[in-house]
Design a binder for these strands. Structure first.
Length: 512
RNA sequence: GAUUCCGUAGCUCAGCAGGUAGAGCAAUACACUUUUAAUGUAUGGGUCCUGGGUUCGAAUCCCAGCGGAAUCACCA
């Protein structure tokens, strides 16, 4: 038995009443929409009133003010809201007509999807409005919508702000909170700008497997699944790096993919189990070239979104104008913590980490220790976009050794607003060195590092055929979106962020 | 994972020295032909997150659970 609130019962009664009137509350229709609301509001002038006679709009009714034989309502489409004026004498022109007196006034509710035809005019108080001459109900809304109201000072009276409710019922959030729609429009524009940037430079957009027999390309724990026909274990990709490099071997000299990756790890305001990054590979380039391109790309995106390189994030202003600060990895540790870690043994590193107050287990591996110390000492200082270069080789199993120092790699990360935004390197293309790095990973795995990489024999075979010198990068789209839209949680830039099951249920729905 | 805070009407929230549950908006009815937080009059609406405990009596106090938020540490 479905329990319904009083308001839902009332709306279902209205639904029945509408059917009794012979009106289909869910008609099939091809509505000849002539304008968008934004289009009308931005271009309407009284002088042109003659040309605004036959306006047809579709949208959701967001408010109603009934004054007897005349009423005002607001219609919201994908672009904005416009006021409607409805008058009984114009809608119910003969005795048999009930559109205004019955359908609109008695049985329509806030939230209903309607279609209207009429002409644009200005009310006595000067608001651009639509004088409705034909009104039809296109879809009945059976649940009450939270209605946000603002007074003249812009103060808000009722809102739909509870993050849990908003994220669980994103459809309601989007109807009611226009600023949320704007965040996702910006995110889409951001991706479009990047795609344009890559395409103009001749890169090819490709698609690679999400279901992978061997996961690789990053340090992370995967989700597993099972293929029934082949009766084999498969992993949801944690990165697409190794596949894109196979394409470089194959002769595509520049490829990229906007990839949804999956990592079976903790959730936080910076982490969702599935997230998006764009990975891009450029043959015959190195990481220095990639740094320059990254500066250019992000500056281009900021300009495209905001018309300026300055972006407000929280109480900070971040400026993406080139050039950005650059530190080597060891140089940054030295600059921000006054430490030189180069000569330290694993034991001494652990001791140093403890001294700094970094919480690390006794069993922590060398790369883990280095990363912990860096995260503790350096990242908190990096608000403005900053390149950190030349990472220690043990932290970078897929990066080429540095030309000047085999203990380092030709790698950089872009850090901005205290968070890693991008990771890039001159790709390791020596198959024997790559095999040795995989073997080092196996050792780490044996020491309990759950995120150590698996060796990928087919990838090694590809490298043995020869991969040109290549620069590669991965850029976190969600985090970049957070910065570009000034949101402090990843859930605010994901339409449907992962959440615990509703009502504390942990079992999934499975029909079999 | 640790710490702190939160869960009351469709929405936003008040109520807590323990004594039968409140406001505004939304809803219902009537009036009203240019309103805009429309207005006026009247009305209905609640497993006070769940379970246990203390008590004559619990929304209020205690314990546990579920869900959420913030801060901190980590993979993007």
């Amino acid at each position: 038995m479905i329990e319904r609130s009083e308001q839902e019962r009332i709306r279902r009664d209205a639904l029945e009443a509408i059917r009794q009137l012979g009106v289909d509350p869910f008609p099939s229709i091809n509505l000849p929409i002539s304008h968008t609301v934004a289009n009308i509001l931005s271009t309407y002038q009284d002088a042109e009133a003659e040309t605004w006679k036959e306006v047809v709009l579709g949208g959701r009714m967001m408010s109603r003010r009934i004054m007897g034989k005349a009423s005002f309502a607001e219609l919201q489409d994908g672009t904005g809201r416009i006021q409607l004026y409805l008058n009984r004498d114009e809608l119910d022109t003969d005795a048999a007509s009930f559109t205004y007196a019955e359908l609109f006034k008695k049985h329509c509710d806030i939230g209903d999807i309607i279609g209207v035809k009429g002409y644009v005019f200005r009310t006595q108080v000067g608001e651009i409005s639509l004088r409705v001459q034909q009104f039809s109900l296109l879809s009945k809304s059976l649940r009450p919508l939270p209605i946000v109201k603002r007074d003249e000072q812009g103060q808000e009276f009722d809102g739909f702000h509870d993050p849990e409710q908003r994220h669980r019922m994103r459809y309601v959030d989007l109807v009611v909170n226009p600023e949320v729609r704007e965040v996702f429009r910006k995110r889409a524009r951001l991706i479009q700008l990047m795609r344009d940037f890559f395409n103009e430079r001749g890169f090819l957009e490709v698609e690679t497997p999400i279901l992978q027999p061997i996961y690789g390309g990053a340090a992370a724990r995967p989700f597993t699944t099972h293929h029934n026909t082949l009766d084999m274990k498969l992993y949801l990709r944690i990165a697409n790096e190794l596949y894109l490099k196979r394409l470089i071997v194959g002769g595509f000299d520049g490829v990229y993919e906007f990839a949804r990756d999956f990592r079976n790890e903790g959730m936080s305001r910076y982490h969702n189990p599935e997230f998006t990054q764009v990975e891009l590979y450029a043959a015959y380039r190195d990481y220095r070239w990639m740094m320059d391109m990254t500066e250019e790309l992000i500056e281009y995106v900021a300009m495209g979104l905001h018309g300026t390189t300055e972006v407000v994030v929280g109480d900070q202003k971040i400026n993406f104008a080139r050039p950005w600060a650059r530190y080597t990895w060891h140089g940054a540790i030295e600059a921000f913590a006054g430490l030189d870690l180069r000569s330290l043994s694993d034991q001494a590193l652990l001791a140093e980490a403890r001294t700094l107050g970094v919480d690390v287990p006794e069993s922590a591996t060398r790369p883990a220790l280095l990363d912990e110390i860096f995260g503790h000492c350096v990242e908190p200082h990096l608000i403005q976009p900053t390149f950190i270069t030349d990472y220690p080789v043990e932290m970078s199993p897929l990066a080429k050794r540095h030309a000047d120092n085999p203990e380092l790699t030709e790698r950089f990360e872009l850090i901005c607003n205290r968070k890693e935004l991008a990771n890039a390197f001159s790709e390791l293309n020596d198959p024997d060195d790559q095999r040795a790095r995989f073997e080092a990973q196996i050792e780490l795995g044996k020491r309990g590092d759950a995120e150590a990489m698996m060796p990928d024999e087919d990838f090694l075979r590809a490298l043995e055929y020869g991969m040109p010198p290549t620069a590669g990068i991965g850029i976190g789209i969600d985090r970049l979106s957070m910065i570009m839209t000034n949101q402090n949680s990843i859930q605010e830039v994901l339409l449907f962020p992962h959440m615990r099951p509703e009502h504390g249920r942990t079992e999934s729905v499975d029909g079999r």
